[in-house]
Simulated assay, not measured.
Amino acid sequence: MKWVNIPDQDGTYDVYRNGDLLGKVNGNEFIDTNVKKNAKYQYKIKGSKKIPDAEIIKKKELLAKNNVTFSEKDEEILFYETKEIGTIVKSTGIPCSIGVGPNKLMAKMAAGMKKPRGLTVLELEDVPERMWPLPVKKLFGIGDRMERHFHRMAIRTIGDLAATDPNLLAKRFGVIGRVLHQSVNGIDYSPVDPYSLDGCKSIGHQFTLPKDYVTENEIKLVIRELAEEVCTRMRRAQCMGRTVSLTLRRGDFRSIHRSITLPDPTNIGRSIFEAAMMLFHRHWDQSPVRLIGITVSQLSSDHIIQLNLFQDGGRKRATVS
């Protein structure tokens, strides 16, 4: 096999077959002699180039300041720009991007800069050069509606928003205006709380599929499994829920997220499954699906049940508890 050269640190390329490293080669050609007849193989060729020393030092200092340790193996990810030159026999791949910053806002902004894969370090002094040229909608917390408001004020980039009088923003948008003006300057006082999700307001589960699912039958099976998994977790937590949310995500990260509220809370798998399928039939546009998720919210204790004269809900609960 042959490929087009890309800029590389030492002209050495890693060749992978079915996820395992076959070897390293100089140049742009490799011959695999250990193959079997009629077998199907996936090959990937990767080249990497070390980032500038100044950027490496900067990353190490920031990681040390945040008490983040890393191994020699991690250095390949942290300090080398890696490019996949080609893939033979197209395979599934779920990429990941990582952002590191002095606060939650900066880390979130950094994570979005090298999607779908890559690690980005963003510090306060980087804000004018790396954040301000971006469209205003790229700022975390700004949606379509707020973007339209800003466009009417001739604010089209994050830098435009940074240059706007904060008093004007506060007069127009209230406290949100002041918070956004702080955000465009990289200021975020919200603490990092590792226990913020302990008091859960919802219970959910999702599957990332091994390939694109394109038929209703195969998607339906996953929805059924998810419904049972979520309900098992609810029963363990001794709670029930009323609002069922279904998430369908395509391979290109476009998502459908819809919810429905049931008349009564439940932790019965069949009820959650039927609600999720109702959402699926209403909103699925026949696009291939790569991720499916179900979440149940509006939780309440399963020790208290609103009795219904026309349904035997109490007996159903007793059967599955």
Rank of each mutant, 00 (worst) to 15 (best):
S245H: 06
A227K: 01
N267C: 07
P265A: 08
S196Q: 12
C231G: 06
K73I: 12
I187N: 05
N34E: 08
G141L: 05
V15N: 10
D252S: 05
V289G: 07
K58H: 07
S297C: 06
K40N: 11
H257T: 15
L221Q: 09
R145Q: 15
R235G: 00
G11W: 04
D302W: 07
M277V: 03
V184Q: 13
K138C: 03
R250E: 12
I292S: 00
K137P: 09
Y213T: 00
E229F: 03
I85M: 05
R258S: 03
S271E: 11
Y189K: 12
H181F: 14
G143Q: 04
Q238G: 04
K316R: 14
V179D: 05
Q286N: 13
K220G: 13
K24L: 05
R172G: 09
N217V: 14
K83W: 10
E81F: 02
F173Y: 10
V296G: 13
D264V: 15
L78Q: 05
Q42N: 14
V15K: 05
I57F: 07
F253S: 05
I85V: 02
K201D: 02
Y41C: 02
K220A: 14
G159E: 01
T208F: 01
D212H: 07
L226P: 00
V15H: 02
S297G: 11
L122T: 04
L221T: 14
A111K: 08
D312P: 07
Q182L: 12
I56W: 06
T164V: 10
P210E: 01
A39V: 01
T120M: 12
L122A: 05
V100H: 06
F280G: 01
Y43L: 04
D74N: 13
D8C: 12
I88V: 07
L122W: 03
K83R: 15
Q298M: 03
G269Y: 00
A318I: 11
P263W: 07
H205D: 00
E274Q: 15
P102L: 10
T33K: 12
L299R: 06
D10M: 12
L248D: 02
G314V: 13
E216M: 08
I56E: 10
A318F: 09
P116H: 06
I51C: 06
G27D: 09
S97R: 09
K49Q: 11
G11K: 12
I223N: 12
A318K: 11
V320L: 13
D126G: 04
T157L: 04
R282M: 09
I223R: 01
A162Q: 01
N34L: 08
D212G: 09
R130K: 10
I45Q: 01
P52M: 06
S196K: 15
Q42A: 08
T208E: 00
D212C: 06
A318G: 08
